[in-house]
């Protein structure tokens, strides 16, 4: 093919891609090409991720054999403490239910969690992401992803058993957050500059925010339920004329993720969904 034709092919390919990018931005969803890519690369990523996991499991087994008795004693103690804690919580739950019934307050559903494997995580570069292997039961788009420490992100694209997750540290991600101490709400976003930090926006200057304050999900964004740890305030500055500039350290260590939990939770009531079939909150 002569060079002039190649230039035309280049122009067509580039214009096509620009249209593709623009349309995708308007729809805000993932594409079929992304699904194909995930299906192609997912198995390779899973294989590579399984190798060190196998080594670490074997090492763990060796270590455990030595201290099984001690481990057993410690776990028994922990179970006893947790049982006591559970008793106290059940009591509080019952009390809450009774009080809720008195004022006709409907408790939001808690949702169920399911453990899935992380096969690829890139939290260090500026276009960060995470890929999960969910097995036979695929994830749902916008499903919250958690770790035992707190909120990780939401499922962004699903390709069979593989799912791509938008991390909360992504600049484009937004989470409805709430300062635990004062219940003041704001929007948590990725901090940018590759720092891996988070910022809490729209917290008015007259609000009392202190370093060390815990920030949880507020349950106002239609994606995440209330009460999941998001991060801790590490810096507070009087930013603009109206709002504080609040910086958070994420609750989750993204470098230590090898398993996460998918939360089966319907943020939007089914009746509302019927009126809004697109599913966008």
């Amino acid at each position: 093919m002569d060079e002039r034709r190649t230039v035309w092919v280049l122009i067509v390919v580039l214009v096509g891609q620009l249209v593709f990018l623009a349309v995708q931005g308007a729809r805000g969803g993932h594409t079929r090409a992304e699904t194909v890519g995930l299906r192609l690369l997912g198995p390779l990523a899973r294989t590579v991720a399984a190798i060190p996991r196998g080594f670490s499991d074997a090492r763990q087994d060796m270590k455990l054999r030595g201290g099984l008795q001690e481990e057993n004693r410690r776990l028994r103690r922990e179970v006893e403490e947790l049982r006591l804690h559970l008793l106290r919580l059940s009591d509080v739950e019952g009390e809450m239910r009774r009080l809720g019934e008195a004022v006709r307050y409907g408790t939001p559903p808690a949702g169920r969690i399911r453990s899935v494997d992380v096969v690829y995580v890139d939290y260090a570069s500026w276009l960060r992401t995470l890929v999960l292997y969910t097995g036979d039961a695929p994830a749902r788009k916008n499903q919250p992803v958690l770790s035992p420490d707190g909120l990780v992100g939401r499922v962004f694209a699903v390709a069979g058993p593989y799912s791509k997750v938008q991390l909360i540290t992504d600049r484009a991600a937004g989470v409805g957050g709430m300062i635990l101490r004062t219940h003041r709400q704001g929007v948590v976003r990725g901090g940018g500059r590759g720092s891996g930090a988070l910022v809490l926006d729209y917290v008015p200057l007259q609000t009392d925010v202190r370093v060390g304050d815990q920030v949880l999900t507020a349950g106002i964004d239609g994606v995440y339920p209330r009460g999941i740890p998001v991060g801790t305030v590490v810096k507070v500055e009087g930013g603009g004329q109206l709002f504080h500039k609040v910086e958070l350290a994420p609750a989750v260590d993204f470098g230590a993720l090898d398993q996460v939990y998918l939360l089966d939770y319907d943020a939007v009531p089914p009746k509302l969904k019927e009126n809004n079939p697109s599913g966008h909150p």
Partner: peptide, 19 residues
């Protein structure tokens, strides 16, 4: 496009750039 699968942000950024 394969690289786009492994990065966040809009899908197609690296497809466009690598072309």
């Amino acid at each position: 496009l394969l690289q786009d699968t492994l990065t966040g942000g809009p899908f197609g950024l690296f497809g466009f750039a690598d072309t």
